[in-house]
Computed example of a mutant assay.
Amino acid sequence: MVALTEKDLLKMSDGGLVELFRTSPPGDIPHGPLEGTGIVPWGGRWVAGPLARLVRMALWRGKVFDRAGYLSNRMTAFDVLAIVAQVYTGPSLLDEQDCIVIDYSRISLVARGVRDEIREVSPGLYLGVVWLLGARVCWFALRVPEIGSESTKAEQTANRPSG
């Protein structure tokens, strides 16, 4: 598996994201909080990057998975946990191959028509596709937070005492 980052995914076209999703394994169902990045595969990197940052700051920050087969979405800059879904392995609407399904239809009033699917495209990095009423509407990435990631290094440098 080639090591990819969210930045790599933000640069990909819709066709490239479809191909990557189709050729990737489901991976293990994650546990705990994952960092999220919204991906719009149109407008080029000049639109995708700034839009992803705006969504992350104002609306959606990722997901928190639990071992009981559920998750909550991390919403707003305050990390409010909301919009619960069931999580299980099942066939993808994209290609009928196994993926990790995030199913809102049975337990969410707000997102009843939404289904997310994810596959692991790089160690600790999942590519997700969002389905709304059976139509593919957008993509997202989920990353397992880890020491040594680009954001962690930047935060450590910013918080280091000077002198």
Results as ranks from 00 to 15, higher is better:
Y104S: 04
W131V: 03
E146V: 10
V110R: 07
S151C: 01
S105Y: 03
L109D: 05
E146F: 02
G134S: 14
I118S: 04
I107W: 06
V121G: 09
R115T: 08
R119K: 14
R143C: 07
V129S: 08
F140W: 00
V137W: 00
V137A: 04
L142W: 11
L127N: 09
S151D: 14
V144F: 01
L127D: 12
R136L: 15
Y126I: 03
V129R: 15
R106T: 11
E155R: 14
A111K: 07
L133D: 15
P145H: 07
V121N: 08
S105A: 15
E155T: 03
E150W: 02
S151V: 13
I118N: 05
S122N: 01
F140C: 14
V130W: 00
L142H: 09
V110I: 06
A135L: 13
E120Y: 09
S105M: 02
A135E: 10
L133T: 03
I147F: 03
L132E: 14
G128H: 04
V130R: 12
R106K: 14
P145Y: 05
P123F: 07
V130E: 11
A141T: 04
L142S: 10
A111R: 11
L125N: 13
D103K: 08
E146Q: 13
L132V: 15
L127V: 12
E120V: 03
V110P: 00
E120H: 08
I147K: 09
D103H: 09
I147H: 03
R112Y: 02
R106S: 14
C138W: 04
D103N: 14
R112T: 03
R115Q: 07
Y126Q: 08
A111N: 06
G148H: 05
I102E: 15
L133C: 04
I102W: 03
P145A: 07
S122I: 00
K153D: 09
S122D: 00
R143F: 02
Y104V: 05
V137L: 09
R115Y: 01
L132A: 12
S105G: 13
R112S: 11
Y126C: 05
L127Q: 11
S149H: 08
Y104I: 04
S149P: 03
I118R: 05
S122H: 01
C138S: 15
Y104D: 04
A111W: 12
S149D: 15
Y126K: 09
R143Y: 01
A111C: 12
L133M: 08
V144C: 10
R106P: 00
R115F: 00
S122W: 02
F140G: 07
V110Q: 07
D116V: 03
I118P: 06
S151P: 02
V130K: 06
P123K: 11
L127F: 10
A141R: 03
E120N: 04
R115S: 01
L127K: 10
W131E: 05
V137E: 12
L132R: 13
V114L: 12
P123L: 10
W139H: 12
E155H: 06
R143D: 05
S105H: 14
V110G: 00
S149W: 04
I102C: 08
I147P: 00
V130A: 13
